[in-house]
């Protein structure tokens, strides 16, 4: 990316965040002056344009910084539904900050300067992680959470859309927090049935504490594998037959 394209992207993202035009102009000139002295390329000096603009223009306040004005919302979805729901909520200005230990998306949104966010999910198990991150980082994607073998990445839509990446009238924070697909409900029903059976067996004395723990762990692991298998099959179906 050349200097012009880089600063055009920074300008677009800052404008989308409501930074006044005169301030953007001065900022860009100041950054150009920095490059003139350092002799470095913009991406090398400042990092990906979208991420730099987000840190620069108050689009994404520092995790440790004051955050009183931001709305917070935590929700989850099953593996069949997560990408669709991330797209829906990202379009409403929700930025995923992390995944908590039980797999919920921890989100924030700043009223008045909310941006649309794009998300993607990639398998990052083993050696794939470095390759995936190397491919996605130059395009402005940054990791925002991990679950099992999956890594989630986010990118402000302003990275590509400029000012159009801002959310004009975001709807109120949803009360709902669980978004299960039909297949997700089926997997959950089977899991509940098996764990319920094991718990009943524990109470009638047919299963010890260790047996119950093993049964729950085994059922959960099998459910995860089954879910991943179904999702992979669905992914292959979506992509169609290989050429």
């Amino acid at each position: 990316m050349n200097d012009t394209a880089y600063f055009a992207e920074v300008t677009g993202a800052l404008a989308a965040a409501g930074v006044p035009a005169a301030q953007i102009e001065a900022t860009v000139e100041d950054l150009r002056a920095h490059l003139a002295e350092s002799g470095t390329a913009p991406e090398e000096e400042f990092g990906p344009a979208a991420r730099f603009a987000a840190r620069l223009g108050g689009l994404a306040p520092e995790p440790d910084g004051p955050d009183a004005a931001a709305e917070h919302w935590t929700w989850t979805a099953d593996l069949f539904n997560d990408r669709r729901m991330l797209a829906v909520h990202g379009a409403q200005g929700w930025e995923v900050e992390s995944l908590d230990p039980i797999g919920r998306f921890v989100c924030r949104r700043t009223p008045g300067s909310a941006l649309r966010w794009e998300y993607r999910r990639e398998v990052i198990a083993g050696r794939r992680r470095a390759r995936v991150e190397d491919e996605l980082t130059p395009e402005g994607w940054e990791p925002c959470g991990e679950w099992l073998v999956y890594g989630y990445f986010k990118r402000p839509a302003a990275a590509l859309a400029g000012p159009a990446g801002a959310v004009q009238a975001p709807p109120a924070a949803p009360h709902r927090w669980l978004f299960l697909s039909r297949r997700g409900k089926a997997v959950l029903a089977v899991w509940t049935l098996l764990v319920g059976g094991a718990t009943a067996a524990f109470f009638v004395g047919a299963l010890g504490t260790a047996g119950l723990a093993i049964a729950i762990a085994l059922t959960s692991s099998l459910s995860a594998v089954w879910t991943a298998g179904l999702e992979n099959a669905a992914g292959r179906e979506r992509r169609g037959p290989a050429a």
Binding site: F46, G47, R55, E62
Partner: peptide, 15 residues
């Protein structure tokens, strides 16, 4: 200290 780190810090100090 890269500009990508420095300028957000300067902005926060100014704010």
């Amino acid at each position: 200290i890269k500009g990508g780190t420095l300028y957000p810090v300067l902005n926060r100090l100014e704010e």
